[in-house]
Design a protein around this nucleic acid. Sequence first.
DNA 1: CGACACTTTGACGCACTTCAAAGGGGGTGG
DNA 2: CCACCCCCTTTGAAGTGCGTCAAAGTGTCG
Lengths: 228, 228
Amino acid sequence: MLSPMTNFSFTPNFSNKAPVAHPTIAHSWADSFETMGTSMSFGRNAEIYGENEPAEYLYKLVSGSVRVSKILNDGRRQISAFYLPGDVFGLEISSEHALSAEAITDVEIILVKRSAIEALAARDTDFARQLWAVTGRELQRMQEHILLLIKTAQERVAGFLLEMASRVKCANEVELPMSRQDIADYLGLTIETVSRTLTSLEDSAAIALPTSRRIVFRNRMALQRLNA
Amino acid sequence: MLSPMTNFSFTPNFSNKAPVAHPTIAHSWADSFETMGTSMSFGRNAEIYGENEPAEYLYKLVSGSVRVSKILNDGRRQISAFYLPGDVFGLEISSEHALSAEAITDVEIILVKRSAIEALAARDTDFARQLWAVTGRELQRMQEHILLLIKTAQERVAGFLLEMASRVKCANEVELPMSRQDIADYLGLTIETVSRTLTSLEDSAAIALPTSRRIVFRNRMALQRLNA
DNA sequence: CGACACTTTGACGCACTTCAAAGGGGGTGG
DNA sequence: CCACCCCCTTTGAAGTGCGTCAAAGTGTCG
C-alpha cells in the first residue's frame, strides 16, 4: 500500500544568517521569520523531521512542496497536510513531533528555533497575534480535511482539486507536485480509486489531464457541486 | 440520516459576574477565565452558537456535554468535536463561526468576550502561552480525529471509546452523554453500523453494555489492538 | 397503558478495495 | 537513436464492508 521510498537524497545545505538576538521589532511576520531563520535545502523524498524527534523548530517553505504524514502500525500512511511555498509547518504542541515531514520535490526551507519564536512572541504582541493566526488557519485547514474524509470518492477528489487550485494562484490549471499515492493517502482512498475517479472526472468533461500531474479545469461548477 | 431536533429548550440563564476591566494578572488560566466570564445555562439540544454567527466569545464548559458540528448542504452532519467539563471551545480564527455548538445534555458554561481574551493575552505573556497551548491541544485532537476517519468501522468505534475513556477519569466504565446518531456523525458512519459494531464488540467480550449509554471495558487490550 | 424517541437487528445492494496485469514516460546504456 | 528498464499510472474483474431500507425491540415519560 505504501510505495517504497527511492531517490532518498538528503542534502542539508546550510547557509548564513544567525538568529538576531537584540529585541528589534520586525516590521512584518514574514520579515521576522526570515531574519531569524536558517535556510536549508532537501532533496526529493528526504525526511525533514521524523516522528518522535524533538520538535525544536518551526519551518517556512520557500520553494517546493512538503507532505506531513504518520505511519500507522499496520503500515498504512495518513498524510495530514501538504505545504506549498509560503506556508509554515511544524506547529505542534508537544515537545516531540507526532508526525513526520518529507520533501515531495526538492525544497528550500527556512527554519527558526521554537525558543526564538516563543521569545519574540513574548516581546512582540503583534508577532504573537500573527503566530496565533497561523495556528488558527491550520486548525481551519484540518477542519476542512475532516469534512473531505466523510464524503464519497468523487467528492473527496473534487474537493482536493479545488483546494489545490485555490492555494496556487492559477486560473484554471494546476501542476500537482504529489503522486497519486500521496493523494490517496491524503484522502483516505486507494491509489486505484483516485486514478479511476480522475479519469471519470475527465470523461465527464469536468477536467482534462494533459499529463498525469497536470489538471486543467474545464467545468469548475461541476466540481463545486460535488464539493457539498 | 439526520435525526430531527426535538426537545429544543433554549434557557439562557444569565448570572452575575461582569468582566474585570483593571489589569490584574490572574494567578492561573482557569482563574482568569472564570473571573472574566459570564455564566450561562442551556437545556438539552439548545444551540449555543450557530454557523455564520459572529464569533464574539470563547466558551468554557463547566458541566454537561457539548457537540460542535456542521451541516453539509445535502443534510449530512459532521460532528467536529465533543466537549466535556473543563474543556474550552469556540476557538475559531475567523470572525464568524464556521461550525455550530449545541448542548448534548443540560449544560453550564462560562463565556468570555474574545476581545477581553485578546486584551489579556497582550498584557499577560503567561496567559497568552496558555491560550496557545489550548489551541495546540485542539490541533492535536483534530489530528487524532483525522486518523480515526481513515480506519475501519471497528477501529473507529474502538478508538472513540478509548478516547472518551481517557477523557473522563474513570477506570473501566464510561457513561456516554451522546446518542448513537451523534457517535455516527462524529465517526463518519451510520447509526446502524455504530450499533452493529458495538454489539459485535460486546459479543467478542471486549466491552459490556449494561445500558445503551454505559460502556464497561472488559478487555481494553483488544480495543487498543484495534486502535492501530 | 400508550406514545415517543432511541436502539437493535435483518436482508440486500453498491461503492470502494483488493488482486492482477497492462500501459505510459523518462532516463540510461549500448 | 533505439532499446530496455524502472517507476508511476491506468484499467479490469472479483470480493467485501458499510450503507440503505425496513421492521422489531427497549426504555422513559406522560
